[in-house]
């Protein structure tokens, strides 16, 4: 791969909480170019912690270190908080799982898009509103003038998610971290959100880190897949070759999925092995 947008080498995150130390992310390494890379794994495996570590949005009890965490050539861990804020706002965007928590409940969704616009460009309020409406239209929201005035509780889950995406696109990011962006959506809306993200990768050359636990979706939507188990990347595959997985955890996950047209009386369940959690070798 030629000059990746993001390069991560031996990322470690430890949480120091009242209950003791948890080594939540262990020696995770990967590169992200102008492509769609998925992180999959079960609840608690460390997917969101990786995503948040990349934008340095972890609570104070989390200690992060890495041999390398470089984004567009900059070493993220050594930047000042002010520089980091700048990158977070302009070059890296993050979509969170539940749009209703991320939107401000007492401000109309359109005003929020306008505000995002004003934060990045020196334009009049009237101009920001006009651009905000265009931005809403660009994420396939029908009747954007009407939607502009709605409050977050008045829009459906899929619309909320698209509004978040509209806001994210304003600053022209180079990388998007999407943490379970579609698990709250039904399949038809989900397809629209995915096609928007896909379009960004194809046309604007954005790198997309797609955190999910939906194996089928990842297989058809992404280019590469990192499989996490207990804080480590236990396997990395081309998405189209997920069925060739070697690791027993990945194989177990694939086998546990029901599939249309492959009728079975019982689904196979995961038979966890202690071995899966043992320390893997660090990257040199």
């Amino acid at each position: 791969m030629t000059d990746p947008i993001l390069s991560v080498k031996n990322l470690n995150v430890r949480y120091f909480s009242a209950r003791g130390l948890l080594h939540a992310v262990r020696n995770v390494s990967f590169d992200l170019g102008r492509e769609k890379v998925a992180i999959i794994g079960e609840s608690g495996s460390g997917k969101s912690t990786v995503g948040r570590a990349l934008v340095r949005l972890l609570p104070d009890i989390a200690k992060v270190n890495a041999d390398r965490l470089s984004f567009e050539g900059k070493e993220l861990l050594s930047l000042s908080e002010r520089k980091m804020q700048d990158i977070r706002g302009r070059r890296i965007s993050m979509i969170l799982q539940d749009p209703k928590f991320s939107l401000n409940p007492v401000m109309s969704v359109g005003e929020q898009v306008s505000e995002a616009y004003l934060a990045h460009f020196k334009v009049s309020r009237a101009e920001a509103k006009k651009r905000a409406i265009e931005q809403l239209a660009s994420v396939q929201i029908r009747d954007p003038e009407h939607v502009y005035g709605l409050y977050p509780h008045e829009v459906s889950g899929g619309m909320g998610q698209r509004i978040m995406i509209a806001m994210m696109l304003i600053p022209d990011p180079a990388m998007i971290i999407a943490d379970e962006p579609t698990s709250a959506l039904d399949v038809t809306v989900r397809a629209q959100v995915l096609s928007l993200l896909d379009d960004l990768v194809q046309r604007r050359g954005i790198g997309l880190l797609f955190i999910s636990h939906d194996l089928n979706l990842v297989q058809s939507f992404c280019d590469r897949v990192l499989i996490m188990y207990a804080g480590q990347v236990v396997e990395e595959l081309r998405a189209s070759e997920l069925h060739l997985a070697q690791h027993d955890y990945t194989k177990g996950l694939l086998a546990s999925l029901p599939r249309i047209g492959q009728r079975r009386d019982r689904l196979s369940v995961l038979n966890r092995k202690q071995d899966w959690a043992r320390d893997l070798e660090r990257q040199p």
Binding site: G158, V187, T188, D199
Partner: peptide, 18 residues
Amino acid sequence: LLEASGHYDLAAPPSAQS
């Protein structure tokens, strides 16, 4: 629903229907 279920069809992006 059947087409969108379980996979994303890169060849045929869905039409907008918000």
